[in-house]
């Protein structure tokens, strides 16, 4: 088990290295000079050239990459080009906010998705089933920015129930924090909820048609026990997979939601660092997102083993 985790972690390193290389290459081909951008109204060619030198931007790209990688190994992500702040604390400031959002989105998705999927599977072919399918696909199809705007319009502008957006740390005002998280978490969670509902339904249907379920039924176990204790457990694997696939993307995928609701999280950091050409921050953010995708995948593998005792990792 531990060996398996270790092997997975080591095995992921080349991919992560490739990710860092890709993002590095990408930042360097982005048009627009960070020095000029940083100088803004005060830009002039001499000053910009000096600044580029100061920031080490005129060194060969491979040298820059090597230096960055060297720092990374020592846990040093460099300093932001924009305000000279160290990158790690910036990341640590933003990460909890986005994790909170992702957590609530996932919670909402599970609460909506799993029951909907189960109901649809049990009433296969009924109007309920079709209704769930349409709702689930709608959840997947509705653009985050549209849903976000609609919710703001309805709940904040029309009904005036919820402040339109912003963020308050939970330790400052828990009630307000939760209230403010509601709409963005729902916005972010709908797509996941849809996917979960679809996969729960399909995978449950498949499991229900298998022998051991029939056996359990034949043994006279109540339908409820059969479904919730036996079938659902076995149907969970594909569902966990799809959650894993989407959860990894939630961190970076919250870009739009955070934008619409003015939440100062990871997604905003991504967009801002692209627009400001803040390479060190962008590199770190993408690296962290990639690591989170990767870690979630490992976690999903471990969950398989927990759900299905037949799966063993040597």
């Amino acid at each position: 088990m531990i060996l398996f985790v270790l092997r997975r972690l080591v095995g992921g390193l080349p991919t992560l290295l490739l990710v860092t290389l890709l993002v590095f290459a990408l930042t360097r081909v982005l048009p627009g000079d960070p020095a000029t951008l940083l100088l803004g109204e005060e830009a002039n060619p001499q000053l910009a050239a000096k600044l580029r030198e100061q920031l080490g931007l005129n060194r060969p790209i491979l040298v820059q990459y090597g230096a960055w990688l060297g720092g990374l190994v020592q846990g040093d992500l460099g300093r932001s080009i924009r305000d000279n702040e160290k990158v790690s604390p910036i990341i640590w400031q933003k990460l909890p906010t986005s994790l909170e959002l992702a957590f609530f989105a996932l919670a909402i998705a599970l609460l909506l998705g799993v029951p909907a999927g189960v109901v649809a599977a049990l009433r296969r072919g009924s109007a309920t089933d079709a209704g769930v399918t349409v709702l689930a696909l709608s959840g997947i199809s509705i653009p985050n920015f549209f849903l976000g705007i609609l919710l703001v319009y309805l709940f904040s502008i029309r009904l005036d129930w919820i402040p339109p957006s912003g963020y308050v740390e939970p330790w400052v005002d828990l009630r307000k924090n939760l209230l403010l998280m509601l709409l963005p978490a729902f916005t972010l969670g709908t797509a996941l909820a849809g996917a979960i509902a679809r996969f729960t339904r399909n995978s449950l249907l498949e499991v229900l048609s298998q022998d051991y379920v029939r056996t359990a039924r034949a043994k006279g176990l109540g339908e409820r026990i059969v479904v919730w204790r036996h079938a659902l457990r076995n149907a969970a694997i594909p569902v966990v997979t799809v959650i894993g696939l989407q959860l990894g993307g939630l961190l970076g995928g919250a870009v739009i939601t955070e934008q619409v609701f003015s939440i100062p999280g990871f997604g905003r950091l991504v967009v801002d660092s692209v627009f400001n050409r803040d390479f060190p921050v962008l590199q770190a953010v993408v690296l962290i997102s990639a690591i989170s995708v990767f870690l979630v995948n490992v976690l999903v593998d471990l969950l398989y083993a927990a759900i299905d005792p037949r799966i063993r990792y040597g």
Binding site: T15, L18, V23, L26, L30, P31, V270, V293
Partner: peptide
């Protein structure tokens, strides 16, 4: 490995960066 790396990028981040490039 290359596709893995690309899949590890948040979809939008990659799209934004590419559109900017």
């Amino acid at each position: 490995r290359l596709t893995d790396a690309m899949l590890a990028f948040p979809f939008l981040v990659l799209a934004i960066a590419l559109a900017a490039v």
